[in-house]
Nucleic acid binder design. Structure first.
Length: 493
RNA sequence: GCCGCCCUAGCUCAGUUGGUUAGAGCGCCAGAUUGUGGCUCUGGAGGUCUCCGGUUCGAUCCCGGGGGGCGGUACCA
């Protein structure tokens, strides 16, 4: 094979490899959040990674652009199938397909990988994990409130300290009512207003004012066409987005701004009911607030919308402050199942972006050091005694201690280095002396890690053999157990 | 998608106003230390200077295009 024929070892754009550090953290979050969902009475459901493209809805592949937004391919029966881009659309399909036999309302949670064929950015990939819970078949605002409460509890279970995250709640009907009152009837104009409001956190009121009016010229020189509202209507929209305060107080302020549109009043009533339910579920304004500036996606939400925002201050690899922003979101989508059945079916749900949540927690230094632990390494001192070494590893494993026999070809020095690099708590050394005496030498690597900080002289360091004890073979497991119980990795690192 | 910037060793980056042997730090490997990781010292390996084409006696450097990355913007279920 020549050089030019060799493939380059690289992962596709927007896709990343994730190692133990990330995976253990994500699994923990997944397990914790799932447990919360189950405690609220949601049953697990797994649906396929692929769906027929028309079932996914919005991004229908056509001959020209089959992969717009989704990863799609044509099956050998000529039908387009596509990788799911979230867990809600497959749920809508499942609910429609099995509606007759499902207990209603149907409450399920699901987690899994989703794929989006779009431009990757920092912390934004084309493949990631979501954990999602939905109630299908209940129009009650309490169903929304319960989803919100569950999301708040999920955050705590995932390791977010109380007070470090907030659920922001809004209702599409308010925005619709506002626009009706402001005289916005054109659908395109409505969308433009929603997009403008969605940018409030990034551009501020002045930027949004421009986008509500004629348009805005950004620093790269690109011009974004605005919604074309007149000044009075634009100010009315801005006043609406600024109405956030305490939950009850926000409701009062919004009532003033929206002023009696039928749809707006409906939205207000729903929010009032959500407020009451949240209060009885024990969620105060420190954990769930009304924020009129929350928009979420444009397409399918019909009522309440929610967003989970992390408030932890964090920095990236280079020490730059990072805005963590949203780690999950959801809302009410009363029309999604109707796409299949023709019958309006109320539904509401919430999704966590697990990878993003895990990355945020790691960035905030909330990662448990125990996640990084390697196994106890049994040093191969004598190639002819492999059976004995495997017996030692087996004994440790039997006692529930992760352990492995070194399977490389290198000498003892390299084996010690290997154990160190794996962040192993201990190494087991059994050589000629130990075999003869019926003993084992156990080296506490954590202790060495801690002591090494103050060591400058290599000869003395080696002579001392810190944390190393030779004990009767029968006491091996107990000795290792003692080292593990000390959990000295934190102080060693 | 559009606009701008960038791409030299595994990583972070020097450097060559186009000239023949391209550098550093960190990391990696080995020895000092015959059965012992982290400190120190010594040595070593590692580069088609992102790729393809053009200009040139000669291109890592100049020009064009591709790819990848970063930032802004648009979109974001």
């Amino acid at each position: 094979m020549t050089d030019t024929q060799r493939p380059e070892a690289r992962s596709p754009r927007g896709f990343i490899d994730r190692r133990a550090r990330d995976l253990t953290a994500e699994r923990k979050i997944l397990t914790a959040v799932s447990a919360v969902y189950e405690r609220y009475g949601f049953e697990p459901l797994e649906t396929p990674a692929f769906e027929y493209a028309d079932a996914l809805g919005k991004f229908l592949p056509d001959a020209d652009r089959p992969n717009e937004g989704v990863f799609a391919l044509q099956d050998d029966d000529e039908q387009w199938i596509a990788l799911r881009y979230d867990l809600t659309a497959p749920l809508a399909r499942f609910a429609a397909q099995n509606w007759e036999t499902l207990p209603k309302p149907f409450r399920r949670y699901a987690f899994g990988t989703v794929w989006r064929n779009e431009k990757p950015g920092p912390g934004r990939y084309r493949e990631f994990t979501q954990c999602d819970a939905d109630t299908v078949g209940s129009a009650r605002p309490e169903a929304d409130a319960e989803i919100i409460a569950m999301a708040a509890e999920g955050l705590v279970a995932a390791g977010v300290p109380e007070g470090a995250a907030v659920l922001k709640i809004n209702n599409r009907k308010l925005l619709n009512g506002l626009m009706a009152a402001a005289g916005v009837a054109d659908e395109g104009q409505k969308l433009a207003v929603l997009r403008a409001v969605d940018k409030l956190d990034r551009l501020g009121p002045d930027g949004v004012r421009l986008l509500l009016g004629e348009g805005r010229l950004d620093e790269s020189g690109a011009f974004t066409k605005g919604a074309g509202l007149n000044a009075g209507a634009a100010e009315r929209v801005l006043a609406f987005t600024a109405a956030g305060a305490g939950r009850a107080e926000t409701l009062g302020r919004l009532a003033d701004v929206i002023g009696g549109s039928a749809e707006g009043d409906e939205g207000l009533a729903e929010l009032a009911a959500i407020d009451a339910a949240l209060t009885s579920l024990g969620l105060g304004a420190d954990r769930a607030i009304f924020d009129p500036a929350v928009v979420r996606g444009l397409e399918y939400y019909t009522g309440a919308v929610f967003e989970a925002e992390l408030l932890l201050g964090t920095t990236d690899d280079k020490g730059q402050p990072v805005r963590l922003g949203s780690v999950g979101g959801g809302g009410r989508y009363d029309d999604l199942v109707a796409r299949f059945t023709g019958e309006r079916t109320p539904a509401t749900g919430f999704s966590f972006g697990i990878s993003r949540l895990a990355a945020a927690l790691r960035a905030a230094g909330r990662e448990a050091a125990a996640d990084l632990r390697g196994p106890v390494v049994v040093i191969v001192f004598d190639q002819t005694r492999m059976a004995d070494y495997f017996a030692v590893a087996g004994e440790l494993r039997g006692a529930g201690v992760p352990a492995e026999v070194y399977l490389g070809a290198s000498g003892m020095k390299a084996q010690m280095k290997y154990a160190d690099r794996r962040l192993s708590p201990a190494a087991v050394i059994i050589g000629g002396d130990e075999f003869a005496a019926g003993t084992a030498t156990v080296k506490d690597l954590d202790l060495g890690r801690a002591l090494s900080k103050g060591v400058t002289d290599n000869a003395a360091w080696r002579a001392e053999r810190p944390g190393q004890v030779t004990i009767p073979r029968a006491e091996l497991v107990a000795t290792i157990r003692k080292i593990l119980d000390a959990q000295s990795l934190d102080s060693a690192l």
